[in-house]
Design a protein around this nucleic acid. Structure first.
Length: 472
RNA sequence: GCCCCCAUCGUCCAGUGGCCUAGGACGCCGCCCUUUCAAGGCGGUAACACGGGUUCGAAUCCCGUUGGGGGUGCCA
């Protein structure tokens, strides 16, 4: 009989939710949902100095944004100090742990004197010290043998016990440390699968030794996920890399795209179809299929995923989701914004953006009093062939003044018809108009843009471009 | 230093002894479509780190080398 499937995600609230943590949460969640098990949440906040309680709620919200949910009450380690103290007492009583009065600098100095080998030398091991100010509790690690465990992803892993120093389990301020809290909680929460980042692999023998000393009959199954790395193949770090999931939300990534992309880091569906709905991923996901080697967090590929997800949205939904970027710090005077105009252009914009934060850049010319003229575009299109540019602008002005009906089809015919009958490439003919109207040489479809801009503003921009061309 | 993990296209995944003259996706390049840019279509570029074994046969198994990474806290 195997124990019920129970996994947990155990973040430490020392910062925003990290991309790597999000992936760990996702894989835990996928394992639980795939196997009909439970996904628990635990906040590892034993270090009061580094923990920031105000971030806990943000972590919850970010997990929610990603579409991850959890079962049962959230466990906060900061509220379980008594439980850890009891566990430490029993460890002490059984001789698995002992009090130590060595100060960090003393430990370090002795290590140096020994000749480089870092770590604690067991100085207080057999001194039978009792509690006292400044004293810590250390765990007595075996001197011989090895600690072996099986990892769903890596197979059997073993660590020589002799390399394990007698590590601290209770700080001098009386607060228990990560290893004990972690071991005790996984035991109490009856976690069956410990799924976490590979950076915790070396901590596993310590936790296992602790569990066994706490008289647990069975070890959980471990699964150490490959690290997510940067372009230099180093573990994503808060300092040098863009790792806060919150930042990606602000940059306009869709949660579905982010979750889907994260799922492909260290795992791939058997049929090779990477972009697919989460229910399918849940069905296909298998923890034992997870890759062993680290994965580069490739923004370009994330962008591709995101672009696909954006295009797959119903237009109305695209409009809804764009709202935030349209209203917070838009490049135009807010009162100029017109929902109707945006809705008209939305399908064209949707097809072109890869992130929602790019949306304003595609419609800004519609809501700005004057288009922002891009120098390179002006040079390339207007200055390089002034004769043609002026000619096209004149034609456009003349045609547009009396064009009926004012709609994209007729507008396109006015310019294209002229180009075709005058031996001018359509591409060449539209360019000056585009720059005059939008300020750039690239952008959404021109004829539709002109239609929605309106005759008056269009003529105004054409004339002003002509003037600018004539006076420079 | 010591311990541990890892090693297929630039990147992410396939591949679990013969189906591999190694497949898909992103990127990149080219062509088509086209009012620009996208999107879409078509095509292309590009990898089994190296050296030994084992085997009739190895990307796949074993050993070593090299390379990369993680850990080595009174952080988690």
């Amino acid at each position: 009989m195997s124990s019920p499937l129970r996994v947990r995600f155990a973040p430490s609230p020392t910062g925003y939710l990290h991309i790597g943590s999000a992936r760990t949460a996702l894989f835990n969640w996928l394992t639980a949902r795939h196997g009909g098990g439970q996904m628990l949440l635990r906040i590892e906040d034993t270090d009061a100095d580094r923990s920031r309680p105000e971030l806990i709620d943000l972590i919850f919200r970010t997990l929610g944004w990603l579409g991850l949910d959890w079962d049962g009450e959230v466990v906060h380690q900061s509220k379980r100090a008594d439980r850890y103290r009891d566990a430490v007492e029993s460890l002490l009583a059984a001789g698995h742990a002992y009090w130590c009065e060595c100060r960090p600098d003393e430990v370090k100095a002795r290590a140096q004197a020994r000749g480089g080998k870092p770590g604690y030398d067991g100085h207080c091991r057999d001194r039978e010290l009792g509690p006292g100010p400044g004293r810590v509790v250390r765990f007595r690690t075996p001197d011989e043998g090895e600690t072996v465990f099986s990892d769903v992803i890596r197979g059997q892993v073993s660590f020589p016990n002799a390399d394990l120093e007698d590590f601290v389990i209770v700080r001098s301020n009386g607060v228990p440390m990560f290893h004990v809290a972690n071991a005790v909680d996984d035991l109490d929460m009856e976690i069956s699968h410990v799924i976490r980042g590979e950076d915790l692999l070396p901590a596993t023998p310590k936790i296992l030794l602790l569990r066994r000393a706490l008289s647990s009959e069975s070890d959980p199954l471990f699964a150490h996920l490959p690290l997510i790395v940067n372009e230099k193949r180093q573990k994503l770090s808060k300092r040098r890399d863009d790792v806060a999931v919150e930042d990606y939300i602000e940059r306009g990534y869709l949660p579905e795209a982010m979750a889907n992309y994260l799922a492909t880091l260290g795992w791939g569906p058997p049929d090779g179809i990477e972009i697919r709905p989460m229910p399918e991923i849940i069905e296909l996901f298998e923890l034992s299929d997870v890759t062993k080697s680290s994965a580069f967090f490739d923004i370009k590929k994330l962008d591709a995923f995101n672009g696909e997800y954006i295009r797959a949205l119903p237009v109305g939904e695209f409009i809804n989701r764009s709202t935030h970027w349209l209203f917070s710090n838009p490049p135009w005077p807010p009162e100029n914004f017109s929902a109707g105009v945006f809705e008209f252009m939305a399908p064209h914009v949707q097809e072109r953006v890869r992130t929602l934060s790019e949306v304003p850049g595609y419609v800004d010319f519609l809501f700005l009093d004057q288009p922002l003229i891009d120098d390179d575009s002006w040079q390339k299109v207007m200055e390089k062939d002034r004769v043609l540019a002026i000619q096209v602008l004149d034609v456009a002005i003349e045609q547009f003044e009396s064009l009926e009906p004012w709609e994209s089809k007729a507008i396109s015919l006015a310019i294209i018809g002229w180009a075709d009958s005058n031996g001018v490439k359509r591409q060449k003919a539209q360019a000056p108009v585009r720059v005059a109207i939008t300020g750039r040489s690239v952008g959404p479809p021109l004829w539709e843009s002109i239609e929605v801009l309106g005759r008056g503003r269009t003529l105004e921009r054409l004339r002003s471009a002509k003037t600018r061309l004539a006076t420079t």
